[in-house]
Design a protein around this nucleic acid. Sequence first.
RNA 1: GGCGGCGUAGCUCAGUCGGUCAGAGCAUGCGGCUCAUAUCCGCAGUGUCCGGGGUUCAAAUCCCUGCGCCGCCA
Length: 650
Amino acid sequence: MAKKSKPPFYVTTPIYYVNDVPHIGHAYTTIIADTLARFMKMNGRDVFFLTGTDEHGQKVEKAATAHGVDPRAWADKVVVRFFDLWKALDCEPDFFIRTTMDIHEKGVQKLFKILLDRGDIYKGEYKGWYCVSDENFLTEDVALDKDGTKTCPDCGRKAQVVSEETYFFRLSAYQQKLLDHYRTHPQFVRPQSRMNEVTSFVRGGLKDLSITRTTVKWGVPVPGDPAHTIYVWFDALHNYVTGIGYDRDPALFEKFWPASVHLIGKDILRFHAVFWPAFLMASRLPLPECVFGHGWWMKDEAKMSKSKGNVLDPYVLIRAMGPDPLRYFLLREVPIGLDGNFSHEGFIHRVNSDLANDLGNLVSRALTMIRNYFQGKIPPPAAENPADAEIRKAFEEMKKWAVAQYDSYALNKALEEIWAFITTVNKYLADNAPWKLHKDPALRPRLARVLYQAAASLRGVAALIAPVMPGSAQKMWEFLGESGSVQDVRFDDLAFAGLDIGHILKEPTPLFPRVDLKAFLAEEPGTSKEQPMDEPKTPSVDQNIITYDEFAKLELRVAHVLEAVKVEGAKKLLKLKIDLGTEQRQIVAGVAETYAPEQLVGKKFIVIVNLKPAVIRGVESQGMLLAAVSGDKSAIPFFEADVPTGAKVK
RNA sequence: GGCGGCGUAGCUCAGUCGGUCAGAGCAUGCGGCUCAUAUCCGCAGUGUCCGGGGUUCAAAUCCCUGCGCCGCCA
């Protein structure tokens, strides 16, 4: 059966900043990419899936210095966090590019040189807001303060305008070409709303882009002018070509470039939809088919941010139930282009309802009956009656649509189609009641047919969910007596027939155990100090390192104690009324075993002012004082010198 | 301030060219089955389709306007 050969498929994630601690956002992009890669492979295309890390820049350099190692060693150490997470999430990129790799740096330099020779890069003078203490130019998106100056977002100091020699990319020359491209390739930026944003941005005019810095040392040097370092975007974006063999493996590069889709978060849309295609036009390389900007996951209706402390740790969910429910939820709940809201309630609810009840239970009931009625081996079934034919046709129809939805990146729709079919199979069983057929020996061929239809349905479902839930799909596959990997199925060949029920596993274990919401929430770190089940998955590196940015988010101030009283019924707690200069607050402190209330009145110490208020023993605490703790004893560092109440501490 | 988008059942959202479009899933209530992970199947709803005005034989669907929310830009 000769088939039209399908074009290769090349999917990328952004390269993640290696200093970042991986969170749900990183996980989301990578899960989408992994699912698309798996799907396209099963849909008969040659696939390349690239992810990686951005390892240059000042922050990496600083973190390394702070730890007394060189930047490369630091990157080697922290990059493992990403390796580990992808493994835990069953994400299997074909290559993991790191911008510190030789193959990348060489490629970037080569491309830089090409553009320099062609005149698309030229030397000029860059004028911008510069933070002296951080030795860093502020990025364009830092807004002006009211007084018309800018403040460094990293250290909070005032920045000043400074100019330096720099290389520019002639972005301005590409405005019309970009607009033409958008017009002729309406799918270049997806979803549509993002395309509108990009178009209107470009219409507004493009300025040439400064792409080198002399202030940053940790990066790729400009060829022939090593005082200059290639700045982040020119460096980072080119990972998409160096990662598949640009200037290194022509066969690979020819095969997969241009990329089918760059998956990105909407925050880096402009770099991918404007700068990147302009770079490529300049170097005469074909443009990617599509830049897909996905949405954010909010946590309980709020944007996740470190300062709010509501960043979602994917390991909490993986530890509790493996990667598949998380993969399913993220892809099923929301179309890729939109923002989603993550709550543990919503997550558990959907997982229980769709995975445990609908699919898991269906697998369980069907397999149990095959085991109990036929010792795991279905004998020749009776001919199909109309209802049987209907379920077969429903499958074929569903397969067609689900594949089409997957193919257009509508992963949630694909899953919707599949789940509608699962409901149909459940209904088919209810209508045909094999447990009743079983009671009449004369109806055995009929019974065989009903269970055959169910098993054939599940076999198809296993294949169709495999891109999203590889582990669970494989389990189902094996439960059904199939050998080999479900990932080797090709959807073009996937038929309702072809079921080979050889050896049903004894006692198929529940695919997706129901999760009790209350028990789950109780185990979630944050509510409990205990780590549920200490997986040997101890982080490979010290994840407790924080950046200066993170530290800067703490607002620490000098507090003056006005009143102190014991909290009723709590032997460790004191209720304090404190003055912060600008306001008065009430805090609860667990220092009563060391300090009597009257010892504290009039004292000055350090309080975290922007901590989320909490109610402790019925008393609201609007902050927290700093104290050394040893057993039941605590020691508050008081100020010796006279400092103004409310003074900032850092 | 400029440009763009959105506001539909308790919740999350579908509603292509204006005419069975007032829908789905979840949640809720009732009924059924008992093979199954207290699962599955059936039935039942409720809606000023944000407010107001207009176009039309006909508008959730088009136009204007008010309110609210969001995105991009300045």
